[in-house]
Design a protein around this nucleic acid. Structure first.
Length: 299
DNA sequence: TTCCAGGGTAACG
DNA sequence: CGTTACCATGGA
């Protein structure tokens, strides 16, 4: 009946490792993980579909995608394939990072513990920016709660086999909200203003992923993001890492990164920014992956 | 109870 | 300019 799309996976990719990362919060609302597979809704090529992603039982290491709901034209299949490759970062060769990490005291343990882990992406720019802003200065469980409220309140949902599959809210919807409609979800007034502002920029076509990628360099894209109210160095680099996929994006202000370093080095205090800069010199051009692996040590 | 959470802004000197 | 108060809630 429905087509099964096969997607070959590269060396240094382990589906179970990544599934474990994706399972980290019971409050995650953008996909359902059950029985070794991921199911989620996607809006691609102007259509809304539900897919299931799991490891393929084939000779070559691969994933298989089932189309549970919606058409599966060749064009849509190609779009889904591109989406999955980007989401799971299947097109990056991790060998150079691993070559670097095995010689690096701070990274050895992490890369040995989570082989095949990749930076799980947030392909949608608006979702990535919202997630970054929501997560500023609050603990992660609460951030997941706030995201779920936002998505349940303002995102579209599709029911399938008794389960609700949610799409992230359209920027135009959020752009039209009042601050009060967001503070009622327990977002702060300030963050509510940030979200509405970012939504407006995207809805008006003044900010896009294409535009950021076309800027030519990490630094240029970072400068564009830093001009936006509510986006500082941490949020900019977080988005450059998880959405734009710059391997050298580096959220150096991240408290989780600070705690991981403190723990690994047996320090009594958190490292200073200068100390981190000196340590991270050895991760040059792979700062994003180093950060992601160190985060993984924390939970 | 206090302190910290995947920070950023605006108002100070 | 560098520094600081403030945001607002939940969990340890």
């Amino acid at each position: 009946m429905s087509t099964i799309l096969q997607i070959e996976t590269p060396a240094h990719f382990n589906f179970t490792q990544n599934l474990h990362y994706l399972s980290r919060s019971p409050d995650e609302c953008m996909y359902h993980i059950l029985d070794g597979g991921i199911k989620r809704a996607l809006q691609l090529e102007g259509q809304t579909i539900i897919i299931e992603l799991r490891e393929a039982a084939s000779d070559k290491p691969a994933l298989e995608v089932r189309f549970l709901c919606g058409n599966d034209t060749a064009q849509l299949q190609a779009a889904v394939s591109r989406y999955v490759r980007e989401w799971l970062d299947l097109d990056t060769d991790l060998q150079p990072f691993y070559d670097c990490a095995v010689r690096e005291p701070l990274l050895q343990h992490a890369v040995a513990s989570f082989p095949g882990l990749r930076i799980m992406g947030i392909p949608d720019l608006f979702e990535a920016l919202c997630w970054g802003i929501i997560g500023q200065q609050i603990n992660l469980p609460f951030a997941y709660t706030l995201k779920r409220r936002l998505v349940e309140q303002f995102g579209e949902g599709i029911a399938y086999e008794g389960r609700q599959y949610l799409l992230f809210p359209d920027p135009a919807i959020i752009a039209g909200l009042s601050v009060g409609q967001l503070t009622s979800l327990q977002l702060t007034g300030r963050k509510s203003e940030y979200l509405i502002g970012v939504a407006s920029l995207i809805a008006e076509g003044e900010l896009s992923k294409e535009q950021l990628l076309a800027s030519g360099s990490l630094q240029a894209a970072e400068r564009m993001l830093l001009r936006i109210r509510g986006i500082g160095p941490w949020t900019a680099n977080y988005v450059l890492m998880r959405c734009l996929r710059f391997p050298n994006a580096f959220p150096i202000d991240d408290v989780g990164l600070h705690n991981a370093i403190k723990h690994l080095k047996g320090m009594e205090r958190k490292p200073t920014k200068q100390e981190i800069t000196e340590l991270a010199a050895a991760w040059s051009s792979w700062e994003a992956y180093a950060t992601f692996y160190l985060w993984r040590l924390l939970y």
